[in-house]
């Protein structure tokens, strides 16, 4: 994908010529998972990374997170190396599966990740309370995570990815294993975060998720980016027109056909649209909940945690004060982008 922001300002992820070759024990090249990928993701956008299984999406993400070392190519995340501890302070990551300590409870799990950010106990407790409520696990917070269903574990995973109120959120298959209600909540959350200036990299098979949420996307296959651009660019069909109206009487339909026929248009499909299954499902569950039906599983998530709604809030400043005592005031508001690094990457 070619960069269309030449100055490098406001770019949260930039990678150029990213290549990853896995080697065997004898250091012989075995699999080339990613080859020559160029990506540029701007601040505040929700970006979709699409592709079939084995197309190199997860490998790309792991390189962006510093978990894998690229064989070739360069990466800048929030203007720094992805391995830099200062970068990781502002990144949230939800892996494709929730890899949690099975013996820790939901609360202990979030507390553990909070301590990795060196958050003081009081702030940790407040955030954990809010996040548990947000993902609907506050009633089962003391149960070991190992006893949770896959969807409930995903909720814990999502909560931990937000504990530091990240500027950049990397979500690998965020809705997999979740029921449609939870999936819709997560999609709402992603849209909300995007509208509040957070950058979200969404990696998924769920094409509808990308269509609903992402401003831009890239489609990978065979370790390469095959297509990239805004959703409108990629999805708009310039050779077709569709018209949607309230229910039309049969006579009116015939009239419309006639009008279009007079203009020489014969290829006409007029049908009554079906509801989307998702909206039906959400309605049924909402009715059951309103009737007070008991459930022992996860409940619906609560409202978005307050600390995620604040923009450069006091709490964030407090984390900064602890984790980055000597950072400049500009750093405290949001991670600074090293424009020189971005420029050098662009020039290569």
């Amino acid at each position: 994908m070619s960069g269309d922001s030449p100055s490098g300002e406001g770019i949260d992820i930039k990678c150029v010529g990213l290549t990853k070759t896995f080697r065997d024990f004898w250091m012989r090249p075995r699999v080339r998972a990613v080859e020559g990928v160029d990506l540029e993701i701007r601040r505040g956008e929700v970006f979709g990374l699409l592709g079939p299984n084995g197309s190199g999406k997860s490998t790309t993400i792991k390189m962006l997170l510093g978990l894998l070392a690229p064989t070739r190519g360069r990466i800048a995340v929030l203007g720094r190396s992805p391995r830099d501890v200062a970068t990781k302070k502002h990144v949230g990551y939800l892996p494709e599966e929730s890899y949690l300590y099975r013996f820790l409870s939901a609360r202990e799990t979030l507390d553990y990740y909070g301590r990795l950010f060196r958050m003081p106990a009081r702030m940790r407790r407040q955030r954990v309370d809010k996040l548990l409520e947000m993902v609907g696990l506050d009633a089962v917070e003391h149960r070991p995570v190992g006893e949770f269903s896959k969807g409930m574990q995903r909720r814990v995973g999502l909560a931990q990815s937000l504990i530091n109120d990240p500027q950049l959120l990397i979500l690998d298959e965020p809705t997999s294993g979740m029921d449609p209600v939870a999936a819709r909540q997560i999609k709402n959350l992603i849209a909300e975060l995007g509208s509040r200036g957070k950058t979200v990299l969404l990696c998924t098979h769920q094409l509808s998720d990308v269509e609903d949420l992402c401003g831009r996307m890239a489609i990978m296959y065979g370790g390469r980016v095959q297509a990239a651009g805004t959703c409108d660019e990629l999805l708009a069909r310039s050779d077709r027109t569709s018209i949607e109206t309230p229910l039309l009487p049969v006579g009116v339909v015939d009239e419309v056909r006639g009008v279009l026929g007079r203009h020489g248009i014969d290829e006409i499909t007029i049908e009554q649209p079906r509801r989307r299954l998702e909206s039906l499902f959400l309605e049924v569950v909402e009715q059951a909940r309103a009737a007070g039906t008991h459930t022992s599983g996860a409940r619906s998530g609560g409202p978005m945690a307050a600390f995620l709604q604040e923009h450069a809030t006091e709490s964030e400043s407090a984390v900064e004060a602890i984790t980055d005592a000597d950072a400049s005031p500009r750093d405290k508001a949001a991670p600074a982008v090293d424009t020189n690094l971005i420029d050098s990457l662009t020039r290569r």
């Binding site: 792991k62 997170l65 510093g66 978990l67 501890v85 200062a86 990781k88 302070k89 990144v91 990551y93 892996p95 599966e97 890899y99 949690l100 300590y101 990740y113 990795l116 950010f117 060196r118 995973g157 931990q160 530091n164 984790t323």
Partner: peptide
């Protein structure tokens, strides 16, 4: 082996 290290080392922990 269980990829838990991915969750830990994507946090600011050298």
């Amino acid at each position: 082996d269980s990829f838990r290290i991915h969750m830990t080392l994507t946090k600011p922990l050298p």
